[in-house]
Design a protein around this nucleic acid. Structure first.
Lengths: 224, 224
DNA sequence: GCTAACTTGCTATTCGACAAGCAAGCCCTC
DNA sequence: GAGGGCTTGCTTGTCGAATAGCAAGTTAGC
């Protein structure tokens, strides 16, 4: 009898299980409210194992953030490469990109919750090259696509920030602000309706930019 | 010698000082990370006084939220009354309202941080009649102004949620997402530029709603 | 002097960090 | 090739610090 296979020693598996458990718990309860005891319990190891592999609780938190950013950065890069392969009008490209980003965030609740908590803590640990470079890539892409000013605090940056805000906010506030103003976000159809609203708002809102837009975008009046 | 005058007994003043300190600390560090010791220290009372006046830490937290919602609800109500006194075009009224809401949130960092933390905690304590009624009032106002569907998850609700998202997001993420995508939000001019972008985005974006808008809005092409 | 407004002492609990212990496999030597 | 020691993975014991809540004490003002 080869013992219980799940009790075999496997540091790779243990590290991953601890990271998974910590990511979930940190995202769900926050750093202060999760104990290493909880992390060990969810990961299926003892209370001391997280400390054994990651040193301190703060180090474990940093490891969680690092892995999260690495995964998201990779997803953004491949997603953008895929978006550029099709040859559509700028209008359709932008609509597709906004819709994809909307779905992308919706599929990663741990990620947005971790960043949201990071934003609320004065720490400012958000210097990871992963997220920053993804933002800069998106900025360059949107500036090129729409012929906008790419400089810091230029039009392209504000447009990008607004897109993120619109794709992000309802995920955090689905149980607070959204129902308070009469937006229900429970079924998949609810989310889809929200998505269509956001895409439309961005597409038409771009026509109100201070500068003139490229004629190919302002001239087209139909979408999809 | 009449002792130190600030050491006089004054329950009203003490309660208010404790609520102020707790609001600031809860907003800044969160519920778990603030101790009643800290609250007492900031409020200028001893470590036991918060418990004496408010019972438990959770009760103090609820009291902070209650007072915060009451204040914000009142501010929303008076602000809306003031906005309705002027007789401008729907275009200008909406632009003014969005800009006012933008400034309103920027002036209340404790409020948005508390709600943000509330949204991240699974609790769902956001059933206070104060915030809910304010949202419903705003919904009715925007639906009437633009001639939109006021039903749950209707156009008016989505427009309102988008306005809130655009006025809210950059305040939380001024040190995280905003700089990552190239938006600097430090000086007053930076904030004003963001405000003008948001107002323009909303005004022009409304023309892309699925249904038709009232001609008074869609017909006007100049703003301010 | 009596009550309300605090303060201080105490206790139980939690939690992070460290240290010690234990077991499983790998390598090295004979 | 086998036996023993050594490294690595992981658990458990323990300590010290922080903290919430209660209870007893203390003072101020009517």
């Amino acid at each position: 009898m080869a013992r219980h296979p799940e009790k075999d020693r496997n540091p790779t598996r243990s590290r991953a299980a601890i990271l998974d458990a910590a990511e979930h718990l940190f995202a769900e309860r926050g750093f202060q409210a999760t104990s290493l005891n909880d992390v060990g319990a969810v990961a299926g190891v003892s209370r001391g194992t997280p400390g054994y592999f990651f040193g301190s609780k703060a180090d474990l938190y940093r490891a969680v953030l690092d892995r999260c950013f690495a995964e998201v950065g990779e997803a953004v890069r491949t997603g953008r490469a895929r978006a550029l392969t099709g040859s559509h009008t700028p209008h359709a490209i932008l609509a597709g990109a906004v819709g994809d980003y909307f779905d992308f965030l919706a599929a990663r609740p741990n990620f947005i919750r971790l960043i949201e908590r990071e934003a609320l803590s004065a720490g400012g640990l958000l210097n990871g090259a992963g997220h920053l470079s993804a933002g800069q890539e998106a900025l360059a892409a949107i500036a090129a696509e729409l012929g906008l000013d790419e400089s810091p605090s230029g039009d392209a940056a504000h447009v990008l920030l607004s897109i993120i805000a619109l794709c992000w906010f309802h995920l955090i506030h689905a149980r607070t602000v959204a129902p308070a103003v009469g937006v229900v976000l429970q079924s998949a159809e609810d989310l889809d309706r929200r998505k269509r609203h956001v895409v439309n708002l961005v597409l038409y809102g771009l026509r109100g930019l201070s500068g003139n837009l490229t004629p190919t975008l302002t001239g087209s009046s139909s979408h999809d």
